[in-house]
């Protein structure tokens, strides 16, 4: 494994009795990536992250972190890794400061310096509440404290499992900005899981999609977006007549009638001619939109995967 590969999972899987929660997961996260692990709820994202962080023992496959086998060299493999799994939970009866000391000491093998703890809490805006018990914190503050405890030991790789879950729009925006800051300014490699497509689309450089416990695809976000570049939404009336006309056009591929309108694959250069033909046939054209988004790609690929 080259040093630039931070995480590699090979045929990773977890089986509970006769049900695979996650299987054949072959992830590759490179240094500097903001890697999005995308999938619907229950797809197996959290199970995968828990296996990477050694909370769950895999039934099959292996995990390598920084070139070290997690099973054989757990302590060394996790030395530069931090994470938040599902939601950050703390010792509620202790202050944020003490929680940070406890989390830090488990990584460093000694109690972290008070100044370092306070500086990290200041980074997430919690310095003034450092000595308050965590049970008095709001959900957003706990989320920030979770990020602070992850950053305390200067990790090179952070795993965030659904980091914006339960946050208001402002909180979600702050987390996205923080992810960008950590990646760009601190050079931290990040793996974040989400069922929110726009979250991954906006912050991730590479991604993988997990659906029904299996990994469906993995690659550069921009490359994956290109695959859906020709998807076009036609808003037409009457719908059935319009669908028949579009289906008959040789330049229009795979049309499907949806609640929004008709979605089809059409190259940009053929759109004017298609619209002209529709108008000539008496169809009213309310709009033509490019569906060049991860959402379309995700829905397509999960639907295809679901049909198999």
């Amino acid at each position: 494994m080259t040093p630039d590969i931070i995480l590699r999972t090979t045929h990773l899987g977890k089986k509970y009795r006769d049900r695979w929660a996650s299987q054949e997961i072959d992830l590759e996260v490179r240094r500097g990536d903001v890697f999005g692990l995308l999938g619907p709820n229950g797809a197996g994202k959290s199970t995968t992250i828990r296996m990477i962080l050694s909370l769950i023992r895999p039934t099959a496959g292996r995990v390598e972190l920084f070139g070290r086998d997690l099973h054989r060299e757990r302590e060394k493999a996790l030395q530069k890794v931090a994470g938040i799994v599902e939601k950050p939970d703390f010792y509620l009866y202790l202050s944020a400061f003490r929680n940070m000391q406890i989390a830090g000491s488990l990584t460093l093998g000694r109690t972290p310096e008070s100044r370092k703890v306070m500086d990290t809490l200041a980074l997430v805006g919690l310095a003034e509440r450092a000595l308050d018990r965590v049970k008095t914190y709001s959900h957003g503050m706990k989320q920030r404290l979770g990020i602070a405890q992850a950053l305390l030991t200067d990790p090179e790789f952070i795993l965030l499992d659904e980091p914006t879950n339960g946050l208001d729009p402002q909180g979600m925006k702050e987390v996205r900005e923080l992810v960008r800051t950590l990646s760009v300014e601190r050079g931290i490699t990040i793996l974040l899981s989400s069922h929110l497509l726009n979250e991954v689309e906006h912050v991730a450089t590479r991604m993988a999609i997990i659906n029904k416990s299996r990994m469906v695809v993995q690659g550069e976000v921009q490359e994956l977006l290109k695959a859906s570049a020709n998807r076009v939404l036609f808003k037409l009336s009457p719908p059935k007549k319009s669908f028949s006309l579009l289906s008959a056009m040789r330049t229009v591929k795979d049309p499907s009638l949806t609640e929004e309108g008709i979605i089809a694959n059409v190259e940009q250069k053929h759109i004017p001619a298609a619209v002209a033909a529709l108008v000539k046939a008496g169809v009213r054209v309310h709009g033509v939109e490019s569906r060049h988004s991860l959402e379309e790609y995700f829905l397509n690929i999960t639907a295809e995967n679901g049909e198999q």
């Binding site: 909370l55 757990r74 996790l78 994470g83 799994v85 599902e86 703390f90 929680n99 406890i102 990584t107």
Partner: peptide, 18 residues
């Protein structure tokens, strides 16, 4: 119950020592 294993057991300390 508190969910704090998710805070502690992802750290590079062996479960046996913990």
């Amino acid at each position: 119950t508190a969910g704090t294993f998710r805070l502690t057991l992802i750290r590079p300390v062996s479960r046996a020592r913990f």
